[in-house]
Design a protein around this nucleic acid. Structure first.
Lengths: 244, 244
DNA sequence: TGACTTACGAAAAACTTACGAGTATCCTCG
DNA sequence: CGAGGATACTCGTAAGTTTTTCGTAAGTCA
């Protein structure tokens, strides 16, 4: 990477940090001292080639840094301020070699969070999001205003590590950013994939790199239903395949 | 997000902080300098599409800020000021094609449970169960006396639908019944499989019938560490395999 | 009825793209 | 050492798109 390219990249980064949104090409030009938009265009393209950022074509301020400094989750989860940060000595007991695990007392009694369990994500069929008039507990990290929980039916999402009977917590929204895991409808089939947009094409990547991604074209009917916040599975005897 | 969108969002936020209740659309127009309600309408809609806020249709001052589901989730969630903390009416947002999932009142105030996060289940290697002196929230169905949570490292358990970074709740015990999902050590390797015993032979079945089971013989060193109660996964941008 | 929220339609403003072309720098080959 | 070539870097302008904005009429709720 050339120093100028780095300069542009750094500018974009700091701009985002400062303003909370992406700069326009004109703002980049001014910020980096370019007289022409063409110059910005040039750098944007080269940065894109290097995989440092992605652009959504024709989208205003449609720049996406590829490795945004997204704080590690565990940190925010247990970070300061969190009631779980108290880090008391929870002698967890080693499960090493032959030893037995010492039982641990449970902690806390804080507010619990439940989300409405709204529907069933059918595998390969259109969703029938009906109200189950039920609720399910979730860790607070999965909760949030508007979030709902789906019960997954079918094995169409195994490649994302989501299996029949799992519950997925989703935050409803119809747009997504690159890299987010979305629950989307493609041609009437509902699916969970990782969302990635390059220019005009939208790719839906499975979790496992070995599996082939789906490329969504203009002809496809494509709707994002929401983005995945978490998933849960409860084990019991003979989980899975309870026939059908 | 465009600067204007952010401006509107910020205004709503500060308005709520200042007045304690949501602004009307007219107030938003005045506060942001719009001449027309249509403009406000436009922004509200786009913010809603991005999942940044939820609207109760036709309700006066029916705006609900939604916290971005990505990083600062847990924190903002429990913080004062979060609509969630007081258990207001939260709209679930549109989910299905034409259907709209009606706003669900969320419940709250049940006992909150967290389990000690004890260690890391290494992939294909003997467990190094060390104390993390940390805890993680789980739904009550996963809690129980003695239960602990492991953070999974490695991809050796994908066939069970458990991936790198997942958390598994286990109830430590050294025996299992047929059909239970166990976390076991076989010849020094830790693994999660479904336990099945037929007469003298013990089989460990993967979740997917297509994969081949392991048959444990007498020569093998075999220990059951515990049985799986549940698993959880938290999604965020660029989940999985980014660098490392 | 009064206070708000929704629903179009349409025009101006803001941005992104595409193309063409002109320096400057660095490297290689004869 | 000098000529070619390849890159990096820079301008400017004319489309082509999307965002932003306005206004007005209609629908809701208490």
């Amino acid at each position: 990477m050339t120093p100028k390219q780095k300069r542009v990249l750094d500018f974009i980064l700091s701009f985002i940090e400062e303003h909370g949104f992406q700069p326009s090409q004109l703002e980049i030009a001014q910020g980096c001292g370019f007289e022409s938009l063409g110059t910005v265009q040039h750098y944007l393209r080269s940065l894109e080639r290097h995989g440092l950022l992605a652009r959504q074509s024709n989208a205003k301020r449609g720049l996406q840094l590829t490795n945004p400094p997204c704080p590690p989750f565990a940190e925010t989860l247990r970070g300061a301020g969190s009631p779980f940060a108290k880090g008391g000595t929870l002698s967890a007991g080693t499960i090493a070699k032959g030893e037995t695990v010492t039982p641990q007392p449970l902690v806390a009694s804080i507010t619990f969070l439940e989300l409405p369990l709204v529907g069933i994500v059918a595998a390969g069929k259109p969703v029938h999001a009906f109200e189950l008039a039920d609720a399910i507990e979730v860790p607070s990290a999965m909760a949030g205003p508007g979030n709902v929980v789906y019960e997954v039916r079918g094995d169409s999402m195994v490649e994302m590590g989501i299996m029949d009977g799992d519950y997925v917590a989703v935050h409803p929204q119809s747009v997504a950013e690159n890299g987010q895991t979305v629950i989307a409808e493609v041609n009437g089939s509902i699916t969970i994939k990782k969302y990635q947009r390059k220019g005009n094409t939208i790719q839906l990547l499975p979790a496992n790199a070995a599996m082939s991604p789906i490329t969504v074209t203009e002809e496809d009917e494509f709707h994002i239903r929401g983005i995945l916040v978490g998933s849960m599975r409860f084990y019991r005897k003979w989980t899975g395949k309870s026939s059908t």
